[in-house]
């Protein structure tokens, strides 16, 4: 093999290794869902200050939750399956934290991306499925539909309409720290890890 081919082969190997390293977050994430989870763990993500209203028509901004650890998911109220699973997971996490006397320190939030149909009334009925505590558990909708794209891209959430008139979307539980940064994304089944991270975030001191 000649000198030039040796150089070109070496270059190809180096570039390929770089592409794969970069493209898989160091051989750890082969799907974009795994990638966003690793990314927020390593780099807590600041979120845009968007304006929401909740199920009791209050104006809400993420900064209103300052000092609390926020558990958050994306939903639409007519969701037939995955949102129920998320909801019951929230309910069970809530129960576990209440047993430990930590209920004052957390806020549960469902954000709808179906702004056409999900009115505050529907959000209220949605939250009512799981709790009657409408302070600790908020259902939010954006006041300005034009900000939906920004909201979803902040979180790395993708919503696609499906053939049943519903939506396919990332089914995950998001954790915001006391300063409103996105610090964790988990499967709804991994209650242990979620509770562990919430406890860790509760005991973290705010600078």
């Amino acid at each position: 093999m000649n000198r030039y081919s040796l150089i070109s082969t070496t270059l190809v190997l180096i570039i390929s290794a770089a592409v794969w390293w970069q493209g898989t977050s160091g051989f750890k994430a082969f799907t974009s869902e795994a990638a966003r989870r690793i990314d927020v763990l390593e780099y807590p993500r600041k979120l845009s200050g968007l304006d929401f209203e909740n199920q009791t028509f209050e104006n809400i901004n993420f900064s209103d939750y300052k000092g609390k650890v926020v558990l958050l998911d994306f939903i639409y109220t007519s969701c037939p399956d995955i949102c129920y699973a998320l909801g019951f997971s929230f309910k069970s996490i809530k129960a576990e934290l209440e047993e430990a006397g930590l209920q004052e320190q957390i806020q549960i939030v469902n954000i709808t991306f179906n702004l056409e149909q999900d009115t505050p009334e529907r959000l209220s009925a949605y939250v009512q499925r799981y709790t009657s505590d409408h302070d600790m558990w908020h259902g939010l909708r954006l006041k300005d539909p034009g900000q939906l794209k920004q909201l979803l891209s902040d979180f790395g959430v993708v919503v696609i309409p499906n053939e049943h008139g519903g939506f396919d979307h990332n089914a995950a539980i998001h954790i915001l720290d006391k300063e409103g940064r996105l610090v964790g994304i988990h499967d709804y089944q991994s209650q242990q890890q979620i509770v562990a991270q919430i406890r860790e975030q509760i005991s973290a001191t705010v600078l």
Partner: peptide, 26 residues
């Protein structure tokens, strides 16, 4: 032909870059 003796550099590039596009994430 000069920089791709025995086709080594080319076939490696084809495999690794092609393989990358097989990742769901890509």
């Amino acid at each position: 032909i000069l920089i791709n003796d025995k086709g080594l550099a080319g076939i490696l590039m084809c495999i690794f870059i092609g393989g990358y596009w097989m990742l769901p994430r890509a």
